[in-house]
Design a protein around this nucleic acid. Sequence first.
DNA 1: GATGAATGAGGATTCATTCAT
DNA 2: GATGAATGAATCCTCATTCAT
Lengths: 208, 208, 208, 208
Amino acid sequence: MPRLSEARKEWLTTMMKETIFEAATSVLCEHNVNGTTMNRVAAAAKLSKSSLYDYFHSKEELLRFVCNRITEPILQAVEETVEADTPAPEKLEAVLRAIFEQLGSHQRVLGPLFWDKQFRDVMESSKQMARTTMFEQVAAVFEQGVEEGSFCRVDPVQAARMFMACVSELCEATVASGNSDEARRQAEGLLRLFLHGVLADSGGTDGM
Amino acid sequence: MPRLSEARKEWLTTMMKETIFEAATSVLCEHNVNGTTMNRVAAAAKLSKSSLYDYFHSKEELLRFVCNRITEPILQAVEETVEADTPAPEKLEAVLRAIFEQLGSHQRVLGPLFWDKQFRDVMESSKQMARTTMFEQVAAVFEQGVEEGSFCRVDPVQAARMFMACVSELCEATVASGNSDEARRQAEGLLRLFLHGVLADSGGTDGM
Amino acid sequence: MPRLSEARKEWLTTMMKETIFEAATSVLCEHNVNGTTMNRVAAAAKLSKSSLYDYFHSKEELLRFVCNRITEPILQAVEETVEADTPAPEKLEAVLRAIFEQLGSHQRVLGPLFWDKQFRDVMESSKQMARTTMFEQVAAVFEQGVEEGSFCRVDPVQAARMFMACVSELCEATVASGNSDEARRQAEGLLRLFLHGVLADSGGTDGM
Amino acid sequence: MPRLSEARKEWLTTMMKETIFEAATSVLCEHNVNGTTMNRVAAAAKLSKSSLYDYFHSKEELLRFVCNRITEPILQAVEETVEADTPAPEKLEAVLRAIFEQLGSHQRVLGPLFWDKQFRDVMESSKQMARTTMFEQVAAVFEQGVEEGSFCRVDPVQAARMFMACVSELCEATVASGNSDEARRQAEGLLRLFLHGVLADSGGTDGM
DNA sequence: GATGAATGAGGATTCATTCAT
DNA sequence: GATGAATGAATCCTCATTCAT
C-alpha cells in the first residue's frame, strides 16, 4: 500500500506546515516581521531550527507561505463578491463582510502583512502581492459605483487605499479587544462612514 | 566664564542632536525602522559610532528623540487647532491641514513611525506615544462634533482611528508621488470622504 | 535457502555500493571534496540519505571506499608493471600508460583525491593511503633505474614525488580539455621530460 | 598632532592585519582551505570573531589578502628574474631560487593556495589569480628556451604546468621536513631533473 | 570631548548523523 | 530493509553597546 503511505506522508507534511503556520503567525503577532526569527518560529512550533528548514527552505519561503495562507481565502472571497452583479454600495458591504469572515483569527497578522515595507517587498518580489490585488478589487468596486452613479465622483484608487487602510486598522483594533461582536459593530461603523460620512445631515443613520 | 561655557556646550549638544536627527530620518527613510542601524546613522551624521552614543545612550533613546522631534510640532499644531472655538467639521479640516503642513519632509518617516509595531513599542514603553495623544485629539474633535450635533452619532474613538489610518496612508502615498499639489488634492478628498461619504445622494460635492 | 539468500544479499549490497560509488564520483567531480555532501550523494544515487547510511556508516567510510575503488585497479596495474622484468625507462613508460588507462573517467576525481589535505587525512587515517603505495611503487622504479645504471643518481623518493605531482596535474589538465588524444600526447611529453629533460643537447627528441 | 595619530592608527591597523595574516596562514596549514573558518582564525589571532570582521569584511576578503600577501613578493621576484637578459636555463634556476627564497615560512600554504579549487575560484573571481600569472611567467621562460634553441621543442605551457606542480609538491615536502638545507638540495634536484631528465646518458651530472 | 577597537549575543543557513516506523 | 523526520553543532555574518585613550 505505498499509495496510502504516500498520501499519509503528504498529509503529515501538510499538517506540519499548518503547525508551523500557526507558530509563525503567533510569533508574527508578538514580534512583528523583523522580530520573527527562524529560531522563534521553530521554538513556537516545538521544532528544531533544522527541522523547520525541512519544511521551508528559507525564511522568505516561510513568510510567503504564511502570507498566501492568510491572503488566499480572503482574496478569493473578495473576488467572488466583486464579480457579483450587485450595485456598488452592496458590494462594498459584501467585501467588508467577506474580509472579516475570512480573516478569522488572523487579523493580528494582517496589519504587518499589509503594511510592513519589508514584508511587502517579499511579496512583491514573488509577484503574489495580495495587497495590490486586493486594492485593485476594491478600487474596481468604487469605480463601478462612480460609473453606475451610486457613488459620487471619488478617485477610486484613493478611496480604495483609504478603505483598505481602515480595514487594516480595524483588524488590529478588533483583535486587541478580542470581541467579535464588537468587530461586527465596528465593521458596520466603517461601512456607514464610507457611505455617508460623518456629517449629521448626510443621510447616515446614527449609531456607528 | 563657566556659565557661558556651559551654555555654549548645551548649544553645541543641541546642534549635534539636530544633525543626528537629520541623519537618522534620512536613514529611516531609506532603510525602514529595522534597517536603521547605529552604524548607518553614525555614518550619515559623519560621526563615529561612539560619539553617537555620547548624544544618545541607546538606539531606543535615539528613536524616541526622532519620534518626538517629528511629532511635537504636529501635535502642538493639532492641539491648538482642537482647542480653538470652531465647529467640528471645520476643526477636522484644520487638523488635516495642520498635520500636512507640519509634516514637511518627514512624511516618509511618519508611516513606519506610527505603524511599525516595534517602533510603537519604543514609544509606548516611554509613555510618550504620540500616536495615542494624536488619537485623543482627533477623537476629541469627533466627540465635539457628535455633541454639538454637526456629526451623526459615530464612535469618536473608532472614527479617530480610521481618520488617522487614512492620514498615515495618505502620507506614504503622497510621498511616493512626491507631488505636493497632489497631496493637497488628496487631503481634500479624504476630508470630503469623511464628511460626506461616497454615496451620490449624501450631499458630497463630487470631485475627490 | 539461507545460503542463497545471503549470497543474494551480498550481491545486492555490492551492486548498491557500486551505484553509490558512481553517484559519489559524479558529485565529487562537480563539487570538489568539501562540496560532496551526503545529501548530494544520496540524491545522485536516487537513494534516501538514511539508506546511504545503511551502506556506509559515515562520510569518511564512503570517501575511503571511493578512494579505494578508484585507486585499486590503478595500483594493481602499476604493481604488475613494476614487478615485470624490464629496464626502468620502459617501466616508467608502462607505469604512465597503466595509470592513464585505468583512470578512465575518474581523472577528475584523482586530483582532489590525491591533493586535498582533508581527503588525504581520511586516507592516511585508514592506513590505506594509496598515494603512499603508489609513490613507493614509482620510487621503486626510479631506484631500479639508478641501480641498473639506466638512470643517473637521482633521489628516487623525490623523483617519484615529482612524477606523481606531474601525473596528477596532467590528469586535471587533460580532463579539462576532455580530449583523450591530447591526453596521450601530453603523457608522452611528460615521459620525455622526465627521461631527457628540456635541454636541447640532452638527447631528447623534440616535440613534447 | 592629528597627523601622527592618524599615521599611528594606520600602522596599528597594518600590524593587526599582519597578526591576522599569521593566524590565518597557520590555520590554513593545519586545516586546509575549507577548514579555515573565521572562528578559528579569530581564535588564532586572539581576537573576537566580530573584531576580525572589523579588519576583513568577509572570509573571501581575508583569503584574498592572505593569498596576495604570500604571492606578491614571489610574483615580483619571479617577474624580475624573467625580465632579465639571461639564457633560459639560467632563468629557470633563478626562478626556482626566487620562489624558494620568497616563500619563507609560507610553503605550507602554497599548496592549497595553488591547488585548492575553491581557493582558486576566490582568486580568479578577483582577477588576481597568481597561479595564472606565475604560469605565464614560467611558460615564458620555456618559450624563450625553445626560441633561443637552448631547450628542445617542448610545449611551454605543459612544461610550465609540470614545473609548477613539482614546485608546489616540493614546497609541501620540504616544509614537512622543516629542513631548509634539504630544501635547497631538493630544488637543485628538481632543476637538474627538468634540465637533463633522469636518463643516465642525458648529460645530467648525477646526484639529485 | 571624540573615537578606534573590541565584543557577546543573535540571525539565517547547512550538514552529518540518528531513530522510529 | 528502506526511509522520512528530526536534530545539534557549526558556518558566515551583523549589530548594539562598551572602554581605553
